[in-house]
Simulated scan of single mutants.
Amino acid sequence: MKPTLYIKVCGMREAHSLAAVAALQPDFLGFIFYPKSSRYVGQELSAASLENLPSNIKKVGVFVNETSEVIRQRVQEFKLNAVQLHGDETPNQCQELRASDLLVLKAFALGGNFDFDTLLPYVSHCDYFLFDTKGEQPGGNGLVFDWQLLRNYSLPVPYFLAGGLDLTHAETLRNLQLPGLFAVDLNSRFEISPGKKDPARLNQMIQELRQADVRSSMTSFT
């Protein structure tokens, strides 16, 4: 039976590492198109490297304050299925990209005083939210936030949980009961170096997360 908690592995950049991680069958693979990121795709990963990925794996392009024109160019070049917007993108831009038949994930950095009302204008224009830890960088800071901030989440948009997730969190995540929780986002804690993942540790994490049904309110994605 398919577990209800989906898995995204983000920050892919090297072709060999990509092939090894894809063989583990995560539900989503993320590719960062933000030049200031240490995991920036740049010239290191060709579009051809993505052509033979399993069709059931959704390819997500991560962008920070990029124009819709450039985003669409990367979507076409890399045959992406979804875009993750990790900056100050507006609800209008989310709507614009979603109209291009893309899944739209809008990321937000959570801290202790986060105002969930700021999400309301985005509700009608995003397929998913992604909640990360507030830090110096737009993402990939490797820090965990207090997940209990989400215990009263009541919006209809399901979300990805990100921010420093590691093997030590596997059991807790497997039994975590939070409204709207849809997927986990794995990145920096599973790296040998930026952009190069440790397939053995990722495999262990994926197997532990999938060994039992996770009690999430969301059960499928399109």
Rank of each mutant, 00 (worst) to 15 (best):
T118C: 12
D132T: 06
V123E: 11
G139D: 00
W147A: 06
K134A: 14
L150Q: 08
T133E: 03
V144L: 14
T118F: 04
D127K: 00
G139N: 01
L150P: 08
D115Q: 11
Y128S: 01
Q148K: 14
L143S: 08
L143M: 12
D132G: 09
S124I: 00
D115W: 02
L150G: 10
V123R: 08
D117A: 14
W147L: 07
F129K: 04
F145N: 10
T133A: 15
T133L: 05
D146N: 15
H125L: 00
D132A: 07
G140L: 07
W147V: 12
E136Q: 14
W147I: 04
G139Y: 14
L119I: 10
D117F: 05
V123H: 04
D146L: 03
Y128G: 01
L149T: 01
V123D: 01
D117H: 10
F145A: 10
F131C: 04
V144H: 13
P138I: 08
S124N: 12
Q137A: 15
F116Y: 14
Y122E: 03
L120K: 15
L130R: 02
D115T: 02
D146M: 05
D115A: 12
Y128E: 01
G140D: 09
D115K: 10
C126Y: 00
P121F: 04
T118W: 02
G142H: 03
G135H: 07
R151W: 01
G135P: 06
D115G: 02
D127R: 00
G140C: 07
G135L: 08
G140M: 09
L120H: 11
L119C: 09
D146A: 12
Q137K: 15
L149M: 13
K134Q: 15
D146W: 06
G140H: 09
D115P: 02
L120T: 14
Y122P: 04
E136G: 13
S124T: 05
G135M: 07
P138E: 12
L150S: 09
D127W: 00
D115L: 04
L120V: 14
C126W: 01
D117T: 13
Q137L: 15
G139V: 06
E136Y: 06
H125W: 02
V123F: 01
